[in-house]
């Protein structure tokens, strides 16, 4: 079957099978940042944005992306570098395998919650597993990033 959708801002049109999962489709179409961590929707490694909302691409048929706007980390390189700097400054990126899904969900969170508390962060990102970092460094990086963004906003206001 044929599907058409916006992938990272570009309209694409492709043939797919009715049972192809969005995760596999995206990897086949060059979005290797999208990783598979499990078969049970538990790890969050495959998180992408669909219509600005974080979803598990492992649990989504490619067919269901038809007509939708899908964004992967490939489509948010600038933002990834900006936030990634904070993650790397904690050494919390570690093996990196969970990073893309985690970072996509961080972006989703920041769109939804303007000034999340540590508890809200832990709740929003609970579906993103990480086996290396113990999570503390990830949280530190988010809190520092929020501070930085706040300061940036303040500065913009001041000018």
């Amino acid at each position: 079957m044929e599907i058409k959708f916006w992938l990272n801002g570009k309209k694409i049109q492709a043939e797919t099978e009715p049972d192809t999962l969005l995760l596999d489709f995206l990897r086949e179409h060059g979005c290797c940042s999208v990783k598979r961590g499990c078969e049970t929707a538990n790890s969050g490694l495959c998180t992408v944005l669909m219509e600005d909302r974080p979803v598990l691409s492992c649990s989504m048929l490619a067919a269901r992306a038809d007509g939708k706007k899908i964004v992967t980390l490939e489509g948010m390189q600038k933002e990834a570098e900006e936030f990634g700097e904070f993650l790397a400054n904690e050494g919390a990126e570690q093996c990196g395998f969970c990073n893309p899904g985690f970072i996509m969900n961080v972006f989703a969170m920041l769109k939804e919650l303007s000034d999340p508390t540590e508890e809200e962060i832990n709740e929003y990102l609970a579906g993103n597993l990480c086996r290396c970092s113990g999570f503390m460094g990830q949280t530190r990086s988010i809190l520092k990033f929020l501070e930085y963004k706040k300061a940036e906003k303040e500065e913009a206001k001041g000018q």
């Binding site: 990834a80 570098e81 936030f83 993650l87 790397a88 990126e93 990073n99």
Partner: peptide, 8 residues
């Protein structure tokens, strides 16, 4: 780090 956080 940069490669990892940008999903290369």
């Amino acid at each position: 780090a940069k490669a990892l956080v940008t999903g290369q």
